[in-house]
Design a protein around this nucleic acid. Sequence first.
DNA 1: GAAAATAAGGAATAGGTTTTCCTTCGCAGA
DNA 2: TCTGCGAAGGAAAACCTATTCCTTATTTTC
Lengths: 338, 338
Amino acid sequence: MSSEQAHVVTIREVAAAAGVSIGTASKALNGRGKLREETRARVSAAAERLGFRPNPLAQGLLQGRTYTVGLVTGDSFGRFSIPVMLGAEDALGAGQISVFMCDTRDDPIREQHYVERLLARRVEGIIVTGRRTEPRPSIGADLPVPVVYAMTQSASDDDFSVIPDDRGGGALAARHLLATGRTRIGHVTGPERFEAARRRAEGLTDALAEAGTGLAGDPLFGEWTEEWGRQGADILLRAHPDVEAVFCGSDQIARGVSETLRERGRRIPDDVAVVGFDNWEPMVEGCRPPLTTVDMNLGEIGRIAAEHLLEAIGGAPRARGVLTVPCSLVLRESTRVS
Amino acid sequence: MSSEQAHVVTIREVAAAAGVSIGTASKALNGRGKLREETRARVSAAAERLGFRPNPLAQGLLQGRTYTVGLVTGDSFGRFSIPVMLGAEDALGAGQISVFMCDTRDDPIREQHYVERLLARRVEGIIVTGRRTEPRPSIGADLPVPVVYAMTQSASDDDFSVIPDDRGGGALAARHLLATGRTRIGHVTGPERFEAARRRAEGLTDALAEAGTGLAGDPLFGEWTEEWGRQGADILLRAHPDVEAVFCGSDQIARGVSETLRERGRRIPDDVAVVGFDNWEPMVEGCRPPLTTVDMNLGEIGRIAAEHLLEAIGGAPRARGVLTVPCSLVLRESTRVS
DNA sequence: GAAAATAAGGAATAGGTTTTCCTTCGCAGA
DNA sequence: TCTGCGAAGGAAAACCTATTCCTTATTTTC
């Protein structure tokens, strides 16, 4: 039916079709200036009929705006950065802003290259996101556009980063386990060199201390893998056979832990409760039983980052430092009270 | 040090700084026209010093090109679409083309909305990608720019889709298992309504038939979940206690299958070999033992899709139909020959 | 030494839209 | 009849770059 014309129609043709000048057509379509109602209608009808869309290049050129931002990630748009991106897109899309996607593959050269390209394209801002929340080198000082780091943290204090509240997440898990009557609690988590691992452990131990109890042994730092979860659980059971709960630094670790617990004859949650971290659906649902876990609200992080970026683009004074977003606890079988 | 000016510098200022006209500056920077070497150098130096970057809006307006394409996904940029995207980006980035990212959340309204937006932005082409390879409604007939479907398939024969060779993948698994001396082979896979599931089963049974043997029972169609994998393995073991190998429709299913096999006292790979599908790292590596699996070469799919899009943009006659990309087998412990 | 060719670079145009400023017309008031 | 005003819409500038066409000065050729 609607046989599309490959030819892109301009406002000039709309104006001609409606029998008015270009300027008048523009005013009619944008509701500006003084025009008769009949004229406006005639122009609108012509535009509709011809399928006119204003050329954003021309508009942008004139207004000096592009309504685009860049999104730079080193996570290969993986598990962490995706929800962040979606949240960001939500906030940006509402403002009619489109997103240029760049994956750096964690290569600083590529990253620099992409930043150049984004600036050349006159993006109005940049969001940087990553695989982990670890501090990373600033993407560049004195860039001509605002930059926000989401789910990763710039090493420079002059930059602005939005990351999850890992301490709070640890505390959340601790308080939940205490509330369900468990006091002998172990902790198996990722490498100690990761700030996220350290902060989660801190949040856990501090919350336990506040309640007048302590961790069963030291936190077991290892790897972010299932395999380490299995080993860690073994170590924990040997040192503390009477452990009542395990808080794990990630859902993958929690899976490993759960498996070993089961194999050692511990029932979950009756004998030992397990709490994970990440709320990563395929891991959490495949776990037996389904895993209570801490959700970092990644979408929220992305949304907040994007909102800050929009404000900065709008001229608000540029924020600095780190903003933490609260985690929330997602309850499932693995910590049920029998 | 380099205190950046918020003011964006134009070629006019470069020209003024170099003491030449705008046109001359343009020629100098682009290596066109007849200019003295000294002049070129002077202009280049001025451009460098002022940090000049040509405004892509102005360039695009003039050339009638934008050097952008849209990437539309319903997969929330998940496990499948991400590698596809990266492959596509590889091919496009080399051509200095930037990618607008759009996530439809599988909502047709949002999708239509995004397509509108992309067209308004004058993208030169669109890549559509999805969660599964199932046929989906065409994104629109007679669009003014070329469209390629990657890892998803348009229901319209007029469109062009690039998808993995699921049949071939099934055959690959079959031949590998046969080569390692297993002949009693079972199949646990996803819902029968999925073409991907049916084609993988076909590839498997056909390859077995070719070798003069047959499947142990009918394919067990179910869900794409670990839970179903566990159930499916139970059903299979009850009907065929002497099964020597199981080919699974996904890595998640394979995990469930492996778990049940282990619990029923079967050693992997000594008693029963297991092959998965997807080569999804966290699943495959967490599996005990690590899983031999079929890789769909998603990056390759993305790259091929992007290359076709580039050709179409370049004016090549638009391709139609479906292009399948071969899968490859990734060998790990779960099918080792003892 | 004059005509022609070449080198070097300037002026102007195009691209699509928005906005500012101007023109024209009809009509009210004096 | 003339002045003034508001309504309606046209003309042109502006945004920034690339390119085509010219102009000017220099060199070559006969």
